[in-house]
């Protein structure tokens, strides 16, 4: 109560003091945080790169080296094995899931027009349900899948079909859609056969 009263009674002098205090705190805080940022940024970048590297190696088996090229809202990776032969092209792509964005690395063999493997890099799906999209059992369905559009089925997946996850139909469907989009991006990028 007395706090309200003092606001009304405060003259310009008091007003300046209030603004001065807040500005001072703001400056000190900005100063401290810029140090924190400089200190932690390289570590954060390093984790991101390590995760990316690991994902490229896992979706393009046999890769020992890769080249990175930034596309429109996606990043392409050309993988090479130890004899400098191309192992495939991977794309890092993100799309919306059930709760937030899902970030996926999709590895393909553009010559054979097949998916080689996929890996979920980041997601915010419900643990125990949607989060099961990261399980290898689900991801394995995409291995050696020809380019095209895919159907989500409950069991016994045939050609161009992916077995869904019970309780996580939406997350699984979102992954399928993102992978389809990734395939499209790769086809555009490689110009259909390079």
């Amino acid at each position: 109560m007395n706090e309200k009263k003092s606001v009304q009674n405060s003259g310009p002098d008091n007003m300046y003091r209030l603004i001065f205090t807040l500005v001072m705190i703001g400056i000190i805080s900005g100063f401290v945080l810029s140090f924190v940022f400089q200190w932690t940024a390289p570590h954060i970048e390093q984790h991101r790169l390590a995760a990316q590297r690991e994902a490229v190696f896992s979706v393009l088996p046999g890769t020992v080296e890769y080249e990175e090229e930034i596309g429109e809202r996606v990043v392409f990776f050309r993988g090479f094995d130890e004899h400098d032969n191309q192992t495939g092209v991977a794309v890092l792509i993100s799309g919306s899931g059930f709760q937030g964005d899902i970030e996926i690395m999709v590895g393909t063999d553009p010559l054979a027009e097949k998916i080689r493997g996929i890996k979920i890099l980041d997601h915010t799906e419900t643990p125990g349900l949607g989060a099961r999209i990261t399980e290898q059992q689900f991801l394995n369905h995409f291995e050696d899948m020809p380019f095209g559009t895919y159907q989500l089925v409950q069991q016994d997946p045939g050609e161009m079909e992916v077995e869904g996850i019970s309780g996580a139909t939406i997350s699984a469907r979102n992954v399928v859609q993102i992978v389809e989009r990734a395939v499209g991006k790769i086809q555009d990028y490689t110009g259909g056969g390079r």
Binding site: T21, L22, S29, L33, W39, T40, A41, I44
Partner: peptide, 21 residues
């Protein structure tokens, strides 16, 4: 507002620390 500013500073620190380590 001053308290919230001070708290926000420590929270940002914690956030970056967790992300980095």
């Amino acid at each position: 507002p001053s308290f919230i500013l001070i708290i926000a500073t420590f929270v940002t620190f914690t956030d970056y620390f967790l992300k980095a380590f």
